[in-house]
């Protein structure tokens, strides 16, 4: 089955085609109304938006329900937001969270 004729989750449930846009590290990313930041990033093929505090390894959503905190991102300058819980809003600026997300240790 080719990419073009694949069913999508949105087709399956008959969701609206409307989209809005936010940015991730400066790149434009489309989101559906009500979609979480993590879900919109997955749909754009982006799986990592955090670098761990220790080894600076890439991480993204793991548990998908706000428990594991692996998906922490910096949203509009505020670090440590769980991307799987936060709804993407038009014009949001999402950036990769490095370490604890603060420029200076607190």
């Amino acid at each position: 089955m080719g990419q073009a004729d694949r069913t999508t989750p949105a087709d399956l449930v008959g969701a609206t085609d409307a989209t809005h846009f936010f940015t991730f590290d400066g790149r434009r990313v489309a989101a559906r109304p009500g979609q979480s930041i993590a879900a919109a990033l997955w749909t754009a093929g982006i799986l990592a938006w955090r670098e761990t505090r220790g080894a600076a390894r890439p991480r993204g959503a793991f548990c998908g329900i706000g428990q594991c905190h692996d998906c922490l991102a910096t949203v509009n300058g505020r670090p440590n937001r769980r991307a799987c819980l936060v709804t993407a809003r038009p014009g949001d600026e999402v950036t990769t969270q490095k370490g604890h997300g603060h420029a200076e240790p607190r």
Partner: peptide, 25 residues
């Protein structure tokens, strides 16, 4: 198991059911 793209089974379900998103093809 910490590689991006390795997700929990329940997480894949959750992100699909509410976020209408898949972790891969």
């Amino acid at each position: 198991w910490t590689l991006p793209g390795v997700v929990s089974a329940g997480g894949a379900q959750a992100m699909l059911k509410s976020g209408l998103a898949l972790p891969g093809t």
